[in-house]
Amino acid sequence: TLFEALYDYEARTEDDLSFHKGEKFQILNSSEGDWWEVRSLTTGETGYIPSPYLAPV
């Protein structure tokens, strides 16, 4: 399942991933609570992002 960003987000740590509203992601790991490890389909980068900022496509 692909997810889309509902809002912009600016990374706060080196493990976070900055992204823009509308960017699409592949979920790599969603078992860590509200922070999911994802791969951006736009940039190819991986990192953690807050799951409340995402919605299924």
Results as ranks from 00 to 15, higher is better:
residue 30 S to I: 09
residue 8 D to F: 03
residue 20 H to N: 10
residue 56 P to K: 05
residue 20 H to W: 08
residue 2 L to Q: 07
residue 41 L to D: 05
residue 33 G to E: 13
residue 49 I to C: 05
residue 20 H to T: 12
residue 30 S to E: 08
residue 49 I to R: 00
residue 28 L to M: 08
residue 47 G to C: 03
residue 28 L to C: 04
residue 46 T to W: 08
residue 34 D to W: 13
residue 7 Y to D: 09
residue 8 D to Y: 04
residue 55 A to D: 05
residue 14 E to P: 13
residue 18 S to F: 04
residue 13 T to N: 14
residue 33 G to N: 11
residue 9 Y to P: 01
residue 50 P to C: 11
residue 9 Y to W: 09
residue 40 S to C: 04
residue 17 L to M: 14
residue 42 T to C: 09
residue 49 I to D: 00
residue 40 S to A: 08
residue 51 S to V: 11
residue 51 S to L: 06
residue 8 D to V: 01
residue 32 E to Q: 14
residue 38 V to G: 07
residue 8 D to I: 01
residue 12 R to Y: 09
residue 31 S to G: 11
residue 2 L to W: 10
residue 53 Y to D: 03
residue 44 G to N: 08
residue 56 P to F: 08
residue 6 L to S: 03
residue 27 I to L: 13
residue 46 T to L: 07
residue 27 I to F: 10
residue 25 F to N: 01
residue 11 A to W: 03
residue 28 L to K: 02
residue 43 T to W: 01
residue 34 D to P: 08
residue 31 S to D: 13
residue 24 K to Q: 13
residue 42 T to R: 12
residue 57 V to S: 10
residue 2 L to S: 04
residue 45 E to L: 14
residue 42 T to Y: 09
residue 50 P to S: 08
residue 55 A to P: 04
residue 32 E to W: 12
residue 49 I to T: 04
residue 52 P to Y: 15
residue 50 P to Y: 15
residue 52 P to I: 15
residue 27 I to A: 04
residue 56 P to G: 06
residue 55 A to L: 08
residue 30 S to N: 12
residue 3 F to I: 03
residue 8 D to Q: 03
residue 37 E to T: 06
residue 18 S to C: 05
residue 7 Y to H: 09
residue 51 S to Y: 12
residue 45 E to Q: 14
residue 46 T to K: 09
residue 39 R to T: 10
residue 32 E to K: 14
residue 26 Q to C: 10
residue 35 W to T: 08
residue 19 F to W: 05
residue 42 T to E: 15
residue 27 I to D: 00
residue 34 D to Y: 15
residue 22 G to N: 05
residue 11 A to Q: 07
residue 22 G to Q: 02
residue 14 E to C: 10
residue 36 W to C: 04
residue 46 T to A: 07
residue 26 Q to G: 02
residue 24 K to E: 04
residue 23 E to W: 07
residue 34 D to H: 10
residue 46 T to M: 08
residue 54 L to Y: 03
residue 48 Y to L: 12
residue 16 D to P: 02
residue 45 E to M: 15
residue 51 S to E: 04
residue 39 R to V: 13
residue 48 Y to D: 01
residue 51 S to H: 08
residue 23 E to T: 06
residue 56 P to R: 03
residue 9 Y to R: 05
residue 18 S to D: 04
residue 39 R to I: 14
residue 39 R to A: 06
residue 8 D to H: 05
residue 51 S to P: 10
residue 30 S to W: 13
residue 30 S to D: 14
residue 18 S to M: 04
residue 10 E to I: 14
residue 19 F to A: 10
residue 17 L to H: 03
residue 36 W to F: 05
residue 52 P to K: 15
residue 26 Q to H: 11
residue 53 Y to T: 05
residue 43 T to S: 11
residue 25 F to K: 00
residue 40 S to N: 13
residue 25 F to W: 01
residue 31 S to H: 10
residue 32 E to S: 14
residue 10 E to T: 14
residue 11 A to Y: 04
residue 30 S to H: 10
residue 49 I to S: 02
residue 4 E to S: 06
residue 23 E to Q: 07
residue 33 G to D: 13
residue 11 A to H: 06
residue 57 V to G: 05
residue 34 D to Q: 10
residue 27 I to H: 03
residue 34 D to A: 10
residue 15 D to T: 14
residue 4 E to W: 09
residue 19 F to V: 08
residue 36 W to S: 02
residue 49 I to V: 15
residue 52 P to S: 15
residue 19 F to M: 09
residue 26 Q to A: 10
residue 11 A to S: 14
residue 9 Y to M: 04
residue 21 K to V: 09
residue 17 L to P: 03
residue 47 G to H: 06
residue 32 E to A: 13
residue 30 S to A: 12
residue 24 K to P: 03
residue 17 L to F: 15
residue 46 T to V: 14
residue 34 D to S: 10
residue 17 L to N: 02
residue 30 S to M: 14
residue 18 S to H: 05
residue 13 T to I: 06
residue 48 Y to K: 14
residue 55 A to K: 14
residue 13 T to G: 15
residue 51 S to A: 14
residue 20 H to L: 12
residue 18 S to P: 06
residue 41 L to H: 05
residue 6 L to A: 05
residue 15 D to I: 11
residue 56 P to E: 09
residue 8 D to S: 08
residue 33 G to F: 09
residue 7 Y to F: 14
residue 20 H to S: 14
residue 10 E to D: 11
residue 12 R to D: 09
residue 10 E to L: 10
residue 43 T to F: 02
residue 25 F to S: 00
residue 28 L to F: 03
residue 47 G to Y: 05
residue 44 G to F: 07
residue 1 T to M: 14
residue 20 H to M: 12
residue 30 S to G: 10
residue 19 F to S: 02
residue 49 I to G: 04
residue 12 R to H: 12
residue 28 L to P: 00
residue 17 L to R: 03
residue 11 A to L: 02
residue 9 Y to T: 01
residue 54 L to P: 02
residue 56 P to Y: 05
residue 20 H to R: 15
residue 54 L to C: 03
residue 30 S to R: 11
residue 41 L to T: 08
residue 11 A to G: 13
residue 44 G to R: 03
residue 26 Q to F: 13
residue 15 D to V: 13
residue 6 L to V: 08
residue 2 L to R: 04
residue 55 A to F: 09
residue 3 F to E: 01
residue 37 E to I: 11
residue 29 N to R: 06
residue 9 Y to G: 04
residue 25 F to H: 00
residue 26 Q to D: 06
residue 57 V to H: 07
residue 44 G to Y: 06
residue 6 L to W: 06
residue 13 T to V: 07
residue 6 L to D: 03
residue 45 E to P: 00
residue 42 T to N: 09
residue 16 D to L: 11
residue 29 N to C: 07
residue 12 R to M: 13
residue 20 H to A: 12
residue 8 D to G: 06
residue 6 L to K: 08
residue 49 I to K: 00
residue 50 P to H: 15
residue 18 S to E: 03
residue 37 E to H: 13
residue 45 E to G: 08
residue 30 S to T: 12
residue 8 D to T: 07
residue 47 G to P: 00
residue 44 G to D: 05
residue 38 V to R: 00
residue 22 G to M: 02
residue 8 D to E: 07
residue 38 V to F: 01
residue 17 L to E: 00
residue 38 V to E: 00
residue 11 A to F: 03
residue 43 T to V: 00
residue 37 E to P: 01
residue 44 G to L: 08
residue 23 E to L: 01
residue 54 L to E: 03
residue 32 E to T: 13
residue 41 L to E: 09
residue 54 L to S: 03
residue 15 D to S: 13
residue 7 Y to V: 11
residue 31 S to T: 13
residue 25 F to A: 00
residue 16 D to I: 11
residue 42 T to S: 13
residue 10 E to R: 09
residue 43 T to C: 02
residue 35 W to G: 04
residue 56 P to D: 06
residue 35 W to F: 10
residue 30 S to Q: 12
residue 30 S to L: 08
residue 7 Y to N: 07
residue 9 Y to F: 08
residue 41 L to P: 04
residue 50 P to I: 05
residue 51 S to N: 09
residue 35 W to C: 08
residue 7 Y to E: 10
residue 14 E to V: 10
residue 46 T to Q: 10
residue 7 Y to R: 10
residue 25 F to L: 04
residue 7 Y to C: 12
residue 5 A to G: 02
residue 54 L to A: 04
residue 37 E to C: 10
residue 36 W to Y: 07
residue 47 G to W: 03
residue 13 T to P: 05
residue 27 I to G: 01
residue 48 Y to V: 09
residue 53 Y to L: 13
residue 49 I to M: 04
residue 50 P to E: 07
residue 55 A to N: 08
residue 12 R to N: 12
residue 36 W to I: 07
residue 18 S to L: 02
residue 7 Y to I: 11
residue 8 D to N: 08
residue 24 K to T: 09
residue 57 V to F: 08
residue 30 S to F: 14
residue 17 L to G: 01
residue 11 A to P: 05
residue 32 E to Y: 12
residue 35 W to L: 10
residue 51 S to F: 11
residue 19 F to N: 00
residue 36 W to K: 01
residue 47 G to A: 04
residue 29 N to K: 07
residue 26 Q to E: 14
residue 11 A to E: 03
residue 41 L to C: 12
residue 49 I to L: 06
residue 29 N to Q: 08
residue 57 V to L: 10
residue 10 E to H: 10
residue 28 L to H: 02
residue 48 Y to R: 14
residue 5 A to Q: 01
residue 3 F to Q: 03
residue 19 F to E: 00
residue 33 G to L: 11
residue 46 T to S: 09
residue 33 G to S: 13
residue 22 G to K: 02
residue 26 Q to T: 10
residue 2 L to I: 15
residue 5 A to R: 00
residue 18 S to N: 07
residue 21 K to G: 02
residue 50 P to W: 15
residue 51 S to Q: 08
residue 5 A to F: 01
residue 2 L to Y: 11
residue 20 H to F: 13
residue 18 S to I: 04
residue 33 G to H: 11
residue 16 D to T: 14
residue 6 L to Q: 07
residue 14 E to A: 11
residue 39 R to D: 01
residue 55 A to R: 13
residue 22 G to D: 03
residue 41 L to N: 04
residue 26 Q to I: 15
residue 51 S to M: 09
residue 21 K to T: 07
residue 55 A to I: 13
residue 5 A to D: 00
residue 14 E to M: 08
residue 35 W to N: 08
residue 3 F to T: 02
residue 53 Y to G: 05
residue 47 G to N: 01
residue 33 G to Y: 09
residue 41 L to K: 03
residue 35 W to R: 14
residue 27 I to W: 05
residue 13 T to W: 14
residue 4 E to C: 07
residue 42 T to L: 14
residue 22 G to C: 03
residue 16 D to K: 14
